[in-house]
Simulated assay, not measured.
Amino acid sequence: MIRRETVNEATGGRRLDDVIPALFVGLSKSEARRIIDRGGCAVNNSMVRVASRTVVVGDVIEVGVMEPGRFRELVLPQEALLYEDRDLVALNKPAGVNTQRTPYQLKGTLEYWVAEYFRQQGSKEPARIIHRLDRGTSGVMVFPKHRQAAAWLSKRFHDGQVEKLYLALVSGQPQQEVWRVDGAIGKIGSARYGIMSQGRSAVTEFRLVGASGGHSLVNARPLTGRTHQIRVHLASCGLPIVGDKTYEGEPGERMMLHCAALAFRNEKGTEIRLTALPDGLFAAMMKEYGLDYRLP
Results as ranks from 00 to 15, higher is better:
residue 26 G to K: 07
residue 14 R to H: 12
residue 34 R to Q: 11
residue 39 G to H: 04
residue 25 V to N: 14
residue 25 V to R: 15
residue 38 R to C: 02
residue 34 R to E: 11
residue 29 K to I: 03
residue 15 R to F: 06
residue 24 F to E: 02
residue 39 G to S: 04
residue 27 L to T: 15
residue 32 A to N: 05
residue 19 V to G: 04
residue 12 G to H: 03
residue 9 E to F: 12
residue 27 L to G: 11
residue 4 R to C: 13
residue 10 A to Y: 13
residue 22 A to D: 04
residue 39 G to I: 07
residue 30 S to A: 12
residue 17 D to N: 08
residue 8 N to K: 13
residue 5 E to R: 12
residue 27 L to Q: 13
residue 5 E to L: 07
residue 5 E to N: 10
residue 7 V to K: 02
residue 21 P to T: 04
residue 12 G to C: 06
residue 32 A to R: 02
residue 5 E to V: 07
residue 24 F to L: 06
residue 23 L to Q: 05
residue 39 G to A: 08
residue 11 T to C: 01
residue 32 A to K: 04
residue 15 R to G: 07
residue 10 A to S: 15
residue 15 R to S: 08
residue 7 V to M: 05
residue 37 D to I: 15
residue 35 I to P: 00
residue 19 V to M: 03
residue 7 V to F: 02
residue 28 S to A: 09
residue 22 A to E: 06
residue 26 G to L: 08
residue 36 I to S: 01
residue 15 R to Q: 09
residue 29 K to M: 00
residue 34 R to K: 13
residue 14 R to C: 09
residue 4 R to M: 13
residue 9 E to S: 14
residue 33 R to Y: 06
residue 7 V to A: 03
residue 30 S to M: 10
residue 6 T to N: 11
residue 35 I to G: 06
residue 18 D to I: 12
residue 6 T to R: 12
residue 28 S to N: 09
residue 13 G to H: 04
residue 33 R to V: 07
residue 41 C to G: 08
residue 20 I to W: 03
residue 30 S to Y: 07
residue 29 K to N: 03
residue 6 T to I: 13
residue 2 I to K: 09
residue 33 R to Q: 10
residue 5 E to H: 09
residue 22 A to W: 04
residue 17 D to M: 05
residue 17 D to I: 02
residue 4 R to P: 10
residue 40 G to H: 07
residue 41 C to K: 09
residue 37 D to S: 15
residue 32 A to F: 02
residue 2 I to A: 03
residue 6 T to P: 11
residue 25 V to D: 14
residue 40 G to T: 09
residue 21 P to Q: 08
residue 37 D to Q: 14
residue 5 E to S: 10
residue 6 T to L: 11
